[in-house]
Amino acid sequence: MAKSKIGENAFYQPGASSIEGMPTTLQFFHGHPRIMLRPHWHAQVEVNYIMRGHVHYRMGGHELTLSAGQIGLFWGGQPHQMNESSRDSIYAGAHLPLVHFFRMRLPAAVSAMLMGGTTMLTSQTDAADRENFPRWFHYVTSGEEAKAQHAVEELLLRIQRIFMEPYETVSSGKLDGAATETGAPSPAVVKICDFIAANFLEEVDATDIADAAGLHPKYAMNLFRKSTGMTLIKYLTLLRLSHAQAKLMHSGDSILQVAMDSGFGSVSAFNKAFRSTAGMPPSDFRRDTRASATV
């Protein structure tokens, strides 16, 4: 029997300073993809460009292999796990908070499909991508604001180009054609995302969010749901859960303290929301995650 390569791979170790702990921050990455010992989630759209080798993902409703020369986009709010990464694999990409995502001009159906668990996949890549993705990472991590802003703007333009060329959607193990209708995102949705990103750890509700965007609460809720496929409160809760996830993994705070620090009004509300996303209560998640980290 061939020797397993799993032990030869590095494992992903999420932390309070990682993508889970900063759900409103745009982060770039470049390197060898690390295997995840368990599913995780975060409140950003994830962009993966496979430069070499291949990786395999278990998503909420489907599994997916991405190979060299492919770009995949998916909504990180669904629990997902990279359970296979070839020894030679190299990838690059970014985690896009919705406030950046909705500043792009994309096909009208794209955001709803992404939030619904669909992965967008393209093989229309070239030598420019092999040069640009690593360069964007280096620009963003250079400490120079002008370079970082340039990288973000170029990445957003590159994502928009995905939907100007042939691409596929992957959902529940099926490949389908994609919609071609285009439409500009509503400026009000961007304002909503801006306000939530700045205040998700505070005591805010749908009325506060709508007021910040200058909208009637009912209209704001309908507009956001139409644009994203989810409710305002679901998105607000997801940001809080992402923050709480990181604290559970790497702090010694009590479950009550994690709930309060993450914007939940009570531990019972936190437990209910956490179980709905993770499939287990926060205490079990903390125990299992720490046990996995010792493997």
Score class of each variant (00 low, 15 high):
A278E: 12
A92D: 07
S17Q: 07
I255W: 10
G116P: 05
T231N: 01
W136T: 06
Q124E: 15
I209Q: 03
P97N: 05
R52C: 02
S123M: 10
A210R: 00
M260E: 15
L201T: 08
I209T: 06
H80F: 01
G93D: 06
L64H: 05
V55G: 07
E203I: 04
T65L: 03
T228V: 13
G279N: 00
L96R: 04
A198G: 08
E168R: 12
S4I: 10
R275C: 10
A2C: 06
L241N: 08
F270V: 01
Q124F: 09
T24I: 08
M249R: 15
G279R: 03
A206S: 12
A206Y: 00
P23C: 13
A291Y: 00
N9F: 08
G72L: 11
A92E: 06
F102L: 10
L26G: 05
F74T: 07
R103A: 09
S89V: 14
P79F: 03
G229R: 00
E8C: 07
K218Y: 12
T277P: 00
S17E: 07
T118C: 02
R286W: 04
R275N: 04
G21I: 05
S4T: 14
T119K: 09
L64R: 01
A293E: 13
A278F: 00
Q13W: 00
I209K: 01
N48D: 14
S276V: 00
T237L: 08
V295D: 09
L121H: 06
R290Q: 08
A112G: 09
G31N: 07
L66P: 05
S111G: 10
G252A: 12
L241D: 11
F274V: 09
A151K: 04
A16E: 06
A94Y: 09
L239F: 01
K247A: 05
S171M: 10
D253T: 04
R287F: 11
Y91T: 02
D126N: 13
S227Q: 01
R52K: 15
G116T: 06
T24P: 06
R58Y: 03
H54R: 05
R290F: 03
A197P: 11
K147R: 02
M104K: 00
V170N: 03
I162E: 10
S123K: 13
G263R: 08
N48S: 10
V47S: 12
K272S: 14
D194F: 13
E154V: 07
S142C: 09
K191M: 12
R103V: 09
S242R: 02
G117V: 01
G263D: 07
L121S: 04
G69E: 14
T122N: 08
A273W: 06
T277I: 12
F29P: 04
G7L: 15
E154C: 08
H30G: 03
R52A: 13
Y91W: 15
A259D: 12
H95T: 12
S254P: 14
P14T: 01
V99R: 04
A244R: 11
A220M: 07
H250T: 14
Y57H: 13
F29E: 05
A184S: 11
S292M: 03
M115F: 13
R130H: 14
T125D: 14
A43P: 03
G7V: 12
G69C: 07
E84P: 10
E202H: 15
P185D: 04
H62N: 06
L114A: 12
S254I: 05
R105P: 09
S227V: 11
